[in-house]
Write a protein that binds this DNA or RNA. Structure first.
Lengths: 240, 240
DNA sequence: TTAGCGCCAATGGTACTACGAATTGATCCG
DNA sequence: CGGATCAATTCGTAGTACCATTGGCGCTAA
């Protein structure tokens, strides 16, 4: 366990998920290039596991679109275009590997696309207490942000956006919570954040929260779009 | 094989993917409710397969977040919130089951979020021939649309949006091509499409294409947003 | 009543076997 | 000499039997 995993992942059965992790990283990082052919026997020997475990691993890898196993040929590493890039594990692996900043950019663009609509949907669908909680989170963020407490600020930021996505009532949006959390964390660890959150960001978080609380969907959407506009500038310097 | 599968899915090994399909559908459709506990032995008996195959199936199901297997307990069906709703198979199953229209709505909202940004990105990043091809597709769509040839129109529509997403240069967007294709197909089969595509949609497709061709990102984005605004009205009657 | 111990069922993991399919190469015929 | 057919090899697929591990549940004793 060098860098952990998104959640605890698989509770008990650590064996098969270990080798899954190993091979997954290798493929995603490009160590195992597209077209490379693995053999099942090779997998079990390198990982020191039995045939059954190796097969289970390959099956999961196959369901992620990372490999494709053909009889008499072997286990063929598939091109990036057939990967399930939305799979949490795949995202995790890519963020751990070389293409980290590229991945962060893709994910940030996805955020920019989704979150404004999520905010609008939340304004329409969120429960009263969720809407109130959003406002409280925004004010807390201002407090910790102005105090320069980046750690607490980050956690609140994550909670804010997570709650926004989950309370949108759209499960596809809600499924992106982990992604957003990873992006936010990755952004700070990569040093893409100013030491103090800019005042404008603090204002916009509150603006979004208040718009959602007042069920003004259109306002929430535009405010969120502005908010993410700054994020774009930080992560994607050269326009789109 | 009652209704097929997104692609050919798994080429040769049909056995494990058959039982995967069966159980997956049952969970997604709610036949196997959240918290329901399966036992591995039960799985192999019901499907009439060996332990090995049953285990592989469970592993894949687990990687999709549909189940979680714990020792001494069994295979526990997980709540919807932990499903990988972006997994192509999960999407497929949901569209085949009862929650079909809910799923279509979620996916349509996702389209509304993503495609405008994808159009903008395509305007910046697409190759010259891709941009040209988009224009030609839009004009073809007009021809077949006005002639009332829905079949051909649908295929062109799919190709148009697919090309838009792939040429955006963002792999997360590109990964949504199958989703968009499914939504478009599902929309027509559900009878949510007018018999003749409305003239405005035809205009907007051309507008988007020309904006992308001329590399006017902002125009492409707004035109695409308008285009999808109509789609929203068709699928999501009651404002978001 | 409750705290702690221990049983055992159910999954996790391994090894071995048989089978089928696809590729490759060798043979045979034109 | 070239092309086509057929067989052997090789690898994934499927099945079975077996041991290891663990954690929930019941039993017992204080």
């Amino acid at each position: 366990m060098s860098s952990g995993s998104p959640k605890d992942e698989v509770s008990s059965g650590a064996l098969h998920s270990t080798v899954l992790d190993t091979i997954g990283r290798q493929i995603v990082s490009g160590t195992l290039a597209e077209g490379h052919v693995l053999r099942l026997e090779q997998v079990q020997q390198q990982a020191g596991v039995s045939r059954t475990v190796a097969r289970e691993t390959v099956r999961v890898l196959e369901s992620m679109g990372l490999v494709r196993s053909r009889r008499r040929v072997g286990i063929i590493v598939q091109p990036r275009s057939s990967w399930n890039v939305f799979d949490p594990l795949v995202i995790w692996w890519r963020l751990a590997g070389p293409g980290r900043d590229i991945q962060l950019r893709s994910l940030t663009e996805l955020r920019i696309a989704v979150e404004p609509l999520a905010a609008a949907a939340a304004a329409s669908n969120a429960s009263a207490q969720d809407r109130e909680r959003l406002v409280r989170l925004a004010t807390s963020m201002r407090g910790h942000g102005e105090a320069g407490e980046l750690e607490e600020f980050l956690e609140l930021d994550i909670e804010f956006h997570t709650l926004m996505l989950t309370s949108s009532g759209n499960e596809m949006f809600a499924a992106l919570t982990d992604v957003v959390a990873v992006v936010l964390r990755g952004r700070t660890t990569l040093g893409l954040m100013p030491r103090h959150p800019v005042a404008e960001a603090l204002d916009l978080h509150e603006e979004v929260a208040h718009a959602v609380a007042a069920r003004r969907a259109a306002d929430a959407e535009t405010a969120m779009r502005e908010l993410l506009g700054e994020v774009r500038d930080a992560v994607v310097p050269h326009g789109v």
